[in-house]
Structure formats: structure tokens, C-alpha cells
Amino acid sequence: MEAIDLIEILTKTNGVSGDESAVSEAIAELCVPFSELPIEIDDFHNVICTIRPPREGEPHLLLEAHLDEIGFMVTSISDEGLLHVVPCGGIDRRLQAATSVLVWGRPKTPIPGVVGYLPPELDGPNRTIPKADEMVIDIGFSKEKAKTLVTCGDRATPDITPLQLRNSRVTGKALDNRSGCAAVLLAGEMLAACRDRLKCGVTLLFGSMEEVGSSGTRTAAYKIAPTHAIVVDVSFSATHDMSMQKYPGKIGGGPMIGYSPVLSKDLSRYLETLARKNGIPCQTEVMGGRTGTDADAIAVTRGGVKTGLLSIPQRYMHTPVEIIDTQDIRQTALLMLFYGYDLGGGAI
């Protein structure tokens, strides 16, 4: 599997928090060739893929990436046929006006829409950024027809497919965190290839509802009961309008190894050493408090899990023009491969 192909497949579908079944199925299908046990999609749309069940007394490594994405949820249909929506997760209200979206009432045939917008000529002099509850989606149908196509609770996402830019960089929607899913899938594939030599259990988890509080991952991690975990998410790569000092992450510079009170410092240091030893470019990301990722939930599962965090540097997070570098996905997967290979035989 190539990272770019995975991004194509994984961003084609809807996976807005709480409505992830389409992306769950896509991921489960990709796991089939290397899963040792039947793949499980649970009631929360979490996908659990066992690469190697732990033997008695062995450590059990969980590799996790959340599979949900931010988006809109339809709350009602107005008399004019407009869809009133609320954000699912941290939508950027500044850049929704007059953008193309798909409303995923029926997964196979989503309805195209446009986020409603008032042009300056018809607005007052003091233009403001719309409030979260002021946003609507226009699907161009009357209320009667709209009711046959859309139901309250349907989700909407940007209507775009990935586009390759320079230097193995890709722009698209939901790269937060399908990039992480791609890295975990690649690591799973490589670990499965050397399954017989592993000295630890390895389970992949693609967790749901991270963008709305990690509820999917929390329950799945409880069920899996790992001893160690590496979480993959995206994090900030500085852009022209951000402080390089505060956000030193660089796109294309390799995974950002996280340091945070909730993460295992030993594990993070070990990952750094491992990266250096194997010539994998890496960076560090220091978070004084919580990480704002599924790592926060996984670390406190049951009696506690030694947890590390690898972040794929990303520009313009939570916008329809997120950018990642597919090389960073590859490097992140490699680092997880080396860690999985060492665990049970020397790794911390």
C-alpha cells in the first residue's frame, strides 16, 4: 500500500463524528489482508484489527488513529428548503461561506450543497463572521423535496477529493486524521509481514468520535486492554501567520514525537532514539498539559497504559485545505514498525 493511495481511498467517504460507518467499512476492508483475527467494527464504529494477539505475559501494543472528521450535522429543514446545521467538532466559521459540501443522507449518492452566504452587496456595512448556529446549507430543493432526501442527523463534509501539490504534499479534507489512519494501516501491514518474529501483541484501533471527546477510543481501548500504545494524530506545522518559535513543527520533517505529562517520557525518549538509530527524520512536540488527542483517553485506560504520541505535521488544520506530506506518513509508519519489532525484546 502507498500512503497517497490510502489517502485517496480514506478521504472519499464521510466519517463525521458519530456517523463513521462508511469510513469504518473502508478501513476494515483495507485491514483484511493482514488481520490475524476477524476484524471488529463495534457499535461506536471503532475498527479493531488484531495483527498478533499477545501470548501469556507478553506486552500488548496498541497503535491508534482516530477515524472521524469534523463536519456539520443537519438539525432541521427550513420552509425554504435550507438545511439548518450545527458543527460536529471544531469547524472554522471563518471559511465556510459559499463552499461546496456533500450531505451524506445516503452514503452512495450524497446530495451536493453550498453553505449559505450573503454577498456584501446585500449585507449591511458591518460584516461579521457567522455564528455556529447561523450556518445553513443550500441544496437547491423545496422543503417537500428536501425532506425526502435529507433527514435530521445527516452529516455534511466539504465536497472535495485530494489534490497533490509540490514535494509529495497533498491537500484535502479530513487529512486530520486519515493521515494518521494511513500511517497505522501501513505500520500494521509491515508488522504483519514479520508477525512470527514479534514478541508482543499488536492491535490496531481506528477510533471514533475523537473530535467530540474521544468517546469511541475510550471504550475500545478498555476492551483491548493494551499495556503500551502509540497514538497517531496530526499537529500544527507553522505557516506564515504563525509563530515559528511556538509552533516549530515542519511539514516534511518527519513525525513529531510528543512530550506531555500524560505521555510516557520513557517511551517518547525511546522513540526518539529509535528514529535516530534508523535514520528516520523526526521532530519533537512539547505540550505542557494534555495532548488534545486520543492519547489523553488511552493513557488512563484501566490501570494506565504507557502511551506515546506521534503527530504528522499539518498545515491549515480543520479547514478544507489541510496539507500533509505523504513522506511524513511513511516515516511515522516506519517508526511504529521499529517500535513494535523491539517491544517485548528490549523496548521500553
Binding site: 471544531g90 472554522d92 471563518r94 471559511l95 489534490l163 497533490q164 501539490l165 491537500t171 500544527f236 505557516t239 501567520d241 504563525m242 488534545g292 498545515r315 491549515y316 488544520m317 480543520h318 479547514t319 485545505v321 496539507i323
Partner: peptide, 10 residues
């Protein structure tokens, strides 16, 4: 191809 991005809301 290119994009016009802005810093994330976070």
C-alpha cells in the same frame, strides 16, 4: 494547484 490557508482555529 495551490490553496489559500489560514492558521487553525486552535
Amino acid at each position: 494547484p495551490g490553496v489559500i490557508g489560514i492558521k487553525p482555529i486552535h
